[in-house]
Design a protein around this nucleic acid. Structure first.
Length: 969
RNA sequence: GCCGACUUAGCUCAGUGGUAGAGCACUCGCUUCACACGCGAUAGGUCACAAGUUCGAAUCUUGUAGUCGGCACCA
């Protein structure tokens, strides 16, 4: 059989995925072993609006490698796939579309029509990301594909909301929140990104102090002051947001601050407003900062809000939800944008002579993560989750069981723990239309009724005159449930199999809001809650989560908390935090910088498998700059695999993959011990190359499994790359070439068998190429499958993953082969350095021990071929003419290549001199070390012996080379 | 301000208390019948800097510098 000369990835990428999927290979049900251990992994659901980027490609590759590997080992694997509705992004995207197509706003068409549009949009374009996931070759179970907005997952969301509300862990409250004036919604702290302001300024504003007596300033501590006339007739405050002064309701100073002692309780005539506000004392104020006097705007600043609470200050809202000034700001300002208002306030102060100074000031400002608009702290009524108890569950899990286990552990374990320790309540309502609408209804009196369905709310309220809360939940609220909601949980009881339910709260809700409604006290089962599902039982907790470090707080921590709370068990054991793919200059990829690299373009150029290798080949958790050259080298590797197979197939007449793979390695899995048979002495028990490659294969298999067990993907990639290219192609195939091309069927079968094993090892990383080649190997069948998949249609993805067999590791063969390799390499070196044309004949004289002679004698044909020699003379002592090039081998052997008429003595002298120099450097260091009595006494004996042996080896090699050198004179 | 990571060959990165590694690039040679996306042979590094621990440090400790990241504050 003959195949194309170069590998074309597109073919392989088109051939197999559909069949894998249609044949049910991805579904856990393909596993026919009822006792198979489960392995499950959930995809971090990409945004439904999203397209694939390198971060996805990286994490997807790692997950798929693990899944395919475990599947081949015989686990019942589930790689759960789905997408996230991504509230804000999706709504923004469709809003833009609407504006472009119909010049309308969502408000123009109304909530129902708008959400309808989003669903349409989702159905039309939402498949892009899933098409791309297929393109990547992910072995996800599409029959279980989930979407966060689908009915069952929405039921889970409502269930969780109601239960948390009933326990008082969800409440409604009025707070200063992060408000995005452009998206017009509240955001959680995690959706706010701090960025340095370009031209931050600190404005010093003078507030005139009223000299007349005035009582009842609202500050309880204030005495009615008699008109003490001090030198000061104004107090200066510093602010970065002058426009908020329109909402000031006090000025605060530190009670210990002597400068202002006498002013506490006095009244300020607040410029531009006609209002009078008090000077109050509060510990919060740091005397050293600014002027030591702080303007207090309780409705527009978090800290001011707290001071306002302490002092009973009025909370004057002066802004609208689009960050324009409202009527309360005064008619001169109403309607102005916040930044226009800022300029105008400053201008007015200047006119009044009240602008003391303006300083440049470095400041970071909160921005909306999505639209980059500057966040405005705004007073607003929202829904919150009280996090302390769930937080404690997660902390306990970490403290007592060290779970989840982060890879790499440093720094993520600490960062995660510290973040949890400082966790604050979570703002979960969003002023959007796309998302899970909050399951709370209000009656005519404004009482709130939280329920799973409107019917339940009606029952609780005793009226059907109810209005549902218009807000939706933070997208991350539903993502937090992903590991169990996708497995079918819609509200069953906590797990009872062994693990005790953690943190079930005894106390019911105590927040004021939770008591406002005439809530039904019984959690009635409306028949919508099943008590867990088989998937949940089988696959929860999942084994490992793979994600980026940017969502450890947003997502990972919340899954842990909800998992502990609602299932009573951790959602996963291990969390792999992969690195960030940077551009070639080491910069983060971003849309604004337009330096993103499109994975699809890379697939197109180098193939999916090569891309997967390049991604998996990066160290776990470490950021790395993208280099096309890296992928290119794996593209070349793909071609290497292709051509090695091509060679095997060109010479495969009558040969086939051996059905007893233990001829070369064990194909059994950790689970399928049953496939163990007697190790067949390799087909050529006496052949060094066969014993050597068998040993290398088994060592590699063991090492690859070990690497994957600890998520050292790059280690596995390196092992496979070097085994295949260096050991298998450069040496084994070359050594066996003559036999194989001569039609030795036994050798051909053996090489096919080895190749088949190598393809299996490579399959988790390079699924398309390996399947494409595996299918055309003679003799493959589902007989090579892991026993769990015995009856499935034949595919490499269900073969048994080689785990390696100690009994087939042959250190002696490896040592002997090293000698052969060294001999060939030294001769090649002589040829290259002495400028001997590759076509010119050459004979090799080798002097060495009887044992070494035997090794070389047994492999004479191969050595002659690879060294391009026509003769080998083996003896105990060299007997060659002076005109020879010489070298030494490990094991006190030496070689010479007679070069009558070819040799340039000067050149040979230089060559020998060079070799001597190199050895001498090492020898000197060793001798120095060994003459250090401290070393000899304190270092381990084996180490000392090792160095001594090496030393004597070097001594004799140097001596030999010196003799050779002198002989030339 | 607090916490953390990183600094190794020209580039991108592995690695490790005991002789410093890979890929790519570079140099030299090769139309050797699987592969020029290839084969063969070289060259290239005070492992950021300083001090300490140790028989021995690129590896452990501390400090310094640079790069990057997270968190907090920001009147």
């Amino acid at each position: 059989m003959e195949i194309a000369k170069a590998y074309d990835p597109t073919q392989a990428e088109e051939h197999h995925y559909a069949r894998w999927e249609a044949s049910g290979f991805f579904a856990p049900e393909i596993n026919q072993d009822p006792n198979a251990e489960p392995f499950s992994i959930v995809i971090p659901p990409p945004n439904v609006t999203g397209t694939l980027h390198m971060g996805h490609a990286l994490q997807h590759t790692l997950m798929d490698v693990l899944t395919r590997w475990k599947r081949m080992l015989g686990y019942r694997t589930l790689f759960m796939v789905g997408v996230d509705h991504a509230g804000i992004s999706t709504q923004l995207m469709v809003t833009r579309q609407l504006k472009k197509d119909e010049h309308k706003t969502p408000q123009d068409i109304g909530r129902e029509a708008f959400t309808e549009k989003i669903w349409e949009w989702k159905n039309k374009y939402g498949g892009e990301i899933t098409r791309q996931i297929r393109r990547e070759g992910l072995s996800v179970d599409w029959t279980r594909e989930r979407f966060t907005m689908e009915e069952n997952l929405s039921r889970a969301v409502r269930e969780v909301f109601v239960r948390l509300y009933d326990e008082g862990w969800i409440y409604r409250g009025t707070r200063i929140v992060n408000w995005c004036p452009r998206d017009k919604t509240v955001l959680s702290d995690l959706e706010v990104k701090e960025e340095k302001a370009k031209d931050g300024k600190l404005y010093y504003l003078k507030y005139p102090i009223l000299e007349r007596e005035k009582g009842g300033t609202g500050d309880g501590e204030a005495n009615p002051q008699s008109a003490i006339r001090g030198p000061q007739s104004s107090i200066t405050v510093a602010t970065t947001r002058p426009e908020t002064m329109l909402g000031d309701t006090a000025v605060a100073v530190n009670p210990e601050d002597e400068r202002y002692n006498g002013l506490i309780g006095k009244t300020i005539a607040l410029p531009l407003t006609g209002r009078e506000i008090p000077i109050i004392a509060d510990e919060y104020v740091e005397s050293e900062f600014g002027t030591g006097a702080v303007k207090i705007t309780p409705a527009h600043d978090v800290n001011d809000w707290e001071i306002g609470e302490r002092h009973g200050l009025e909370k004057l809202v002066v802004m609208n939800d689009d960050a324009t000034m409202n009527a309360a700001s005064g008619k001169d300002f109403a309607g102005l944008d916040r930044f226009e208002a800022r300029a105008k306030v400053v201008e007015e102060f200047e006119k009044l002579g009240l602008l003391e100074k303006v300083e440049d000031y470095d400041i970071t400002l909160p921005h909306c993560e999505r639209c980059k608009t500057i966040i405005e702290p705004l007073l607003s009524e929202q829904w919150f989750v009280k996090m302390d108890e769930m937080r404690d569950m997660a902390l306990k899990l970490m403290r007592e069981e060290n779970l989840p286990h982060f890879f790499p552990e440093v720094p993520h374990k600490k960062v995660y723990t510290t973040w949890l320790e400082n966790l604050r309540d979570w703002t979960i309502s969003r002023q959007l239309w796309w998302g899970h609408q909050i399951p709370a209804w209000y009656d005519a009196e404004g009482n709130v009724h939280v329920a799973r369905t409107k019917e339940e709310a009606v029952e609780k309220a005793g009226t059907d005159n109810l209005t549902q809360d218009p807000d939706v939940l933070d997208t991350w609220f539903s993502s937090a449930l992903w590991p169990f909601s996708t497995l079918g949980w819609t509200g069953g009881a906590e797990r009872e199999n062994g693990r005790k339910v953690v943190g079930e709260s005894e106390s019911r809700g105590t927040s004021p809001e939770s008591q406002t409604g005439a809530r039904g006290s019984d959690d009635k089962d409306l028949g919508t809650r099943d008590s867990g599902t088989r998937d949940l039982d089988k696959f929860y907790p999942t084994n490992v989560l793979v994600t980026g470090r940017d969502i450890i707080f947003l997502w990972v921590s919340r899954m842990v908390m909800t998992g502990m709370k609602f299932i009573g068990e951790k959602p996963f054991d291990d969390v792999i935090i992969h690195g960030t793919v940077l551009d070639k200059n080491g910069q983060r990829m971003s849309k604004t910088k337009n330096n993103g690299i499109d994975p699809l373009a890379v697939f197109e150029k180098f193939g999916v498998d090569a891309t997967r290798m390049a991604l998996a080949g990066s160290a776990t958790g470490v950021d790395f700059a993208w280099r096309d050259e890296r992928v290119e080298s794996y593209r070349n590797f793909s071609n290497k695999i292709w051509n090695a197979t091509r060679f095997a197939l060109m010479n495969s007449d009558g040969a086939s993959v051996l059905s007893e793979p233990r001829a070369v390695a064990t194909g059994s899995s950790a689970i399928a011990e049953k496939t163990r048979g007697n190790p067949v002495a390799t087909a050529r028990g006496s052949d060094l190359a066969d014993r050597w490659i068998t040993s290398r294969l088994n060592k590699t298999a063991k090492a690859v499994n070990r690497a994957l067990e600890t998520y050292q993907f790059h280690e596995a990639v390196q092992l496979l790359y070097h085994f295949f290219w260096d050991d298998f192609c450069d040496w084994y195939i070359e050594l066996k070439k003559d036999e194989i091309t001569a039609g030795d069927i036994e050798s051909s079968s053996l090489i096919l068998t080895l190749l088949e094993q190598a393809l299996r090892l490579l399959h988790p990383f390079m699924p398309f190429l390996t399947e494409e080649l595996w299918q055309i190997l003679p003799g493959v069948s589902n007989g090579l499958h892991n026993a769990s998949y015995a009856s499935a249609e034949r595919t490499i993805m269900l073969t048994a993953f080689p785990i390696g067999d100690d009994s087939l590791i042959d250190e002696r063969a490896e040592t002997e082969m090293q000698s052969v390799i060294e001999l060939i390499t030294k001769v090649r070196n002589i040829r290259a350095e002495m400028n001997i044309k590759s076509g010119d004949p050459l004979s090799i004289h080798v002097a060495g021990s009887v044992a070494m002679q035997a090794i070389f004698a047994a492999n004479e044909a191969q050595i002659k071929k690879l060294a391009r020699a026509d003769k080998i003379v083996l003896a105990e002592l060299l007997n060659v003419p002076k005109a020879s090039a010489r070298a030494v081998l490990i094991g006190n052997a030496e070689i010479a290549v007679p070069l009558e008429g070819l040799i340039d003595f000067e050149m040979e002298r230089a060559r020998l001199q060079g070799q001597i120099e190199k050895l001498k450097i090492e020898l000197e260091r060793l001798t120095g070390q060994l003459s250090n009595t401290n070393f000899v006494e304190k270092a381990p004996v084996e180490k000392v012996d090792e160095l001594r042996n090496r030393q004597s080896e070097l001594v004799s090699q140097v001596a030999t080379l010196n003799q050779n050198l002198e002989a030339l004179n």
